[in-house]
């Protein structure tokens, strides 16, 4: 905290302006702006993974394809098999209306489902424990030859994996942005220290300890990085807020953005940027001061 409170008189020993000030402000601001997006991406992909998992987990679909005169009999048979299978909470055949609704996005609302050779779909809801999919397939193959069980695993797993990778990519991006911020602030601090060799020489001449000299530089860079990051975060969060919301038609995507308490996460970016600058400048100052005779 003393970094921010500081010592007004001590702060003045380092000349106030120069390109390093602008570089630090710009670098911290730009990196914070990018961090907001990486954070939003990461959180959105996390939500996506949860949503895909929730929507597809613990449900399965049975598809019964049979000649129209056998379709109802096979459906009844399949429902009996399902009702007697451990791990299945409920099973119900979708009505013609529901099946029409599922096909409507592709064929329009007036599709005469009854006249088309469309398979009968049965929605299966699992218990917490779930059922033995391999065993159920064997029973269905024996008793309802036209039934195909889709337990959604082949959809869910790659989608969840992709969402997980996307989330990981977001965090890796944030780590890279943090490292780049540290590198750029270190460069700026080194340049400032080199440009102020005369100031350092005078301060040493009059009895300033290296810790005092380092703190004067560290405080300045920390405050600049904090302010730059605050501006970048504000602009980034504003840009996210102004993004168009995901429409119902694109409901599969949750949209890039923050939800609820997630909006508070960007608030952490400026202090973290300040800490990164504090650590990077401190290391640079100690190294430079050790090297100066």
């Amino acid at each position: 905290m003393s970094v921010f409170v500081g010592d007004a008189q001590a702060d003045r020993v380092v000349p106030p302006t120069g390109f390093t000030a602008r570089l630090t402000l710009f670098a911290a601001g730009a990196m914070a702006f990018l961090t907001v997006f990486a954070l939003a991406l990461s959180l959105a992909s996390g939500r996506l993974a949860v949503r895909w998992g929730d929507e597809l987990a613990q449900s399965s679909t049975l598809r019964i394809s049979a000649p129209s005169e056998q379709l109802q009999a096979q459906t009844i048979l399949a429902l009996r098999v399902l009702e007697s299978t451990p791990g299945i909470a409920s099973a119900r055949a979708l009505s013609a209306e529901e099946q029409r609704g599922l096909l409507a996005p592709w064929f329009g609302p007036d599709l005469p489902v009854e006249t088309l050779p469309i398979p009968q779909l049965v929605e299966i809801l699992e218990t917490e424990e779930g059922y033995d999919a391999a065993g159920l397939r064997l029973r269905l193959a024996a008793e309802v030859p036209g039934a195909v069980l889709d337990d959604h695993a082949r959809w869910r797993e790659p989608l969840e994996r992709a969402a997980g990778r996307l989330r990981l990519l977001g965090w890796v991006s944030i780590a890279l942005i943090g490292a780049t911020t540290a590198a750029m602030i270190t460069l700026a601090a080194n340049a400032a220290l080199a440009a102020n060799a005369q100031v350092i020489s005078v301060l040493r001449l009059i009895g300033a300890q290296d810790g005092y000299i380092a703190r004067a530089f560290v405080r300045r860079f920390t405050v600049r990085a904090f302010l730059g990051a605050a501006i970048g975060t504000f602009l980034g969060a504003g840009a996210i807020y102004l993004l168009p919301e995901a429409q119902d038609e694109a409901g599969f995507l949750t949209g890039l953005g923050f939800v609820g308490a997630g909006w508070f996460l960007p608030v952490l970016i400026p202090p973290i940027a300040g800490f990164v600058a504090y650590a990077a400048t401190g290391a640079a100052a100690r190294r430079t001061l050790r090297g100066l005779s």
Binding site: R204, L205, G207, A208, Q209, D210, G211
Partner: peptide, 10 residues
């Protein structure tokens, strides 16, 4: 060390 030097210079 450097701190000793700083103290001496005061």
């Amino acid at each position: 060390d450097r701190d000793d030097h700083a103290m001496a210079r005061r």
